[in-house]
Amino acid sequence: MSDKTVITAKDLSKRFGDFTAVNTISFDVRQGEIFGFLGANGAGKTTAIKMLCGLSKPTSGEASIAGFDIYKQTEEIKKHIGYMSQHFSLYQDLTIRENIRFYAGIYGLKARQIKERSIELISDLGLDDYTDRFVKELPLGWKQKLAFSIAVIHNPSIVFLDEPTSGVDPITRRQFWGLIYEAAAKGITIFVTTHYLEEAEYCDRVSIMVDGLMHDLDSPKALMEKYNKPTMNDVFLQIAIRNSRKEK
């Protein structure tokens, strides 16, 4: 992990009417860091991620993503990040090759780059014999691996992973984290949310949002020591149970 900062957020807020979804959060993320972004449902995670990806304008505060300003350079931001979630993923009725071509195009790669990167990606995943298969025919674990590889096909500074492993079997989930480690080792910053709290322990640092505020931010080890708990699950249960704004 380098000392270079790729995400800087300062007093970032988002209000909807009189409801403050994200309340003055400040943090830095370094290049190649695996950064866990935790919080109970409704704590403000999704709103914060949308702002960081350039999809939603903050009400106040500042942030820079991969060196680009979150207000003025949202198109540049989109070219320098990757995004993957359980819900927004691959097109089931396109083949593996078509999905790769489609997303590589969306991420702004040129025809020649698309060709080169496709070959590389397919061979890295060992999918050479299956490129004309429809994605819907792939086992879920393979879909996840393919979706992740596509999310980093344009060699982004940062990849946002929104619950990438939900519902996946426990062995595939661990293989998926292998991919995350490899990408981080190559210098790609990983920004990940998860409901599997033992996965939080695989992160370099973890933040926990409660009621729109960034309640804690530290290494899993330091957080477990601070709250004197044996696992991140116990830490999370203690902190997030205070989430008062379940319903407004």
Partner: peptide, 13 residues
């Protein structure tokens, strides 16, 4: 059927 899918740890409990 998967009542706790995608639900945070506190609500699951």
């Amino acid at each position: 059927d998967e009542p706790t899918f995608g639900v945070d740890a506190v609500s699951r409990k």
